[in-house]
Simulated assay, not measured.
Amino acid sequence: MIYKLRVILDNEEDIFRDIAIESSDSLEDLHNALVNAFGFDGNEVASFYTCDDNWNQEDEIPLFDTGDVAGEMRIMSDFSIEDLLYEKQTKIIYVYDFLNMWTFLVELAAIEEKQVGVTYPELLFSHGLMPIGENNINFEADDDNLFSEFDDDLDEDDLDMFDGDDSFEDYGFEENWN
C-alpha cells in the first residue's frame, strides 16, 4: 500500500510537503525522504516520536542507537512506517537537527494502491520555503531587565575564591586530599 503523508514544519509560516511512500518502507526511508523534500544536507541527527491525537510527544525512535547497551534500543531501520501509522493512529512527530530543533508534524492523509510505473517515495506537493539559516526559535528573554539582578561590581576578588586568608578547611576538604 502507498501512504500519502502531509509533513508540516512547526513554524509560524505555512511550510509543508506531501509525500507518497510505501507503507512497508522503514522509518529510516521516511527520514531520508524528508531530508530530501525539505532540502537538508542529511548530516544531522534525527528522531521520530510517537504521539497522541493532540500531538503530545511520547516514545522516541532515533536514527542511531544512543542507548547505554548497544543493540538494546530500537532505531528507525527497525520499524516500518505501517508499524506506527495506520487508520486509527495517523500522527507522528519528526525532529531533525537537535541544535536547531526542526520539528515536523507528520500525518497520514490517505492510504492508496500502488501505481504502476511510479517510483516511491515521491514528493507530491511542496508549499513554502525553509527559513534560511537557523530555525526561528527565539531563546531571548522578553524582559530586558532579566539579568539586572546579576549585574554588580564584579572584580578580581570575585573570580578567585582561594586568594586571601581563606583556607581549604573552610570548604570542608583538605588541600592535599590525594
Rank of each mutant, 00 (worst) to 15 (best):
E107M: 03
A141R: 05
N136T: 14
M76D: 01
V95R: 09
E72T: 03
D155H: 07
A141N: 14
D152Y: 08
F104K: 08
A110H: 12
F79A: 05
E112K: 14
E82Q: 02
L124A: 03
D160E: 10
D151H: 04
E82S: 13
L108E: 11
T119Q: 14
E113D: 15
F64V: 01
V95C: 12
E82C: 11
I93H: 06
D152M: 12
L124K: 07
V95A: 09
G117M: 04
I111W: 12
D157L: 14
G67F: 04
G117T: 07
S80K: 11
L159W: 05
E113H: 11
R74M: 14
K88G: 00
E112S: 15
G71D: 04
I137F: 14
K114M: 12
L154Y: 15
P62W: 02
E134C: 06
F64R: 03
V106M: 05
E149I: 08
P131S: 01
T66H: 11
L84Y: 02
Y96N: 14
N138Q: 11
V106S: 05
I75D: 02
D59W: 06
D83V: 06
Y86K: 15
L108A: 10
V95H: 09
Q89P: 01
Y120I: 09
D166C: 07
D59E: 12
M161V: 08
D153G: 13
G71L: 04
K91A: 06
H127C: 12
S148I: 04
E87F: 06
D163R: 08
L146E: 10
V69L: 08
S126V: 10
A110C: 00
M101D: 10
I93N: 13
R74H: 09
D155P: 02
M161Q: 02
K114G: 00
Q115N: 03
D65T: 03
E122A: 10
I81P: 01
M161W: 12
E72L: 10
L105A: 05
I111Q: 15
G164K: 05
D160A: 15
Y120A: 03
L123K: 03
F139W: 00
K88H: 13
I137T: 13
E134S: 08
F150T: 09
L105G: 00
D143S: 10
N135A: 03
N136E: 15
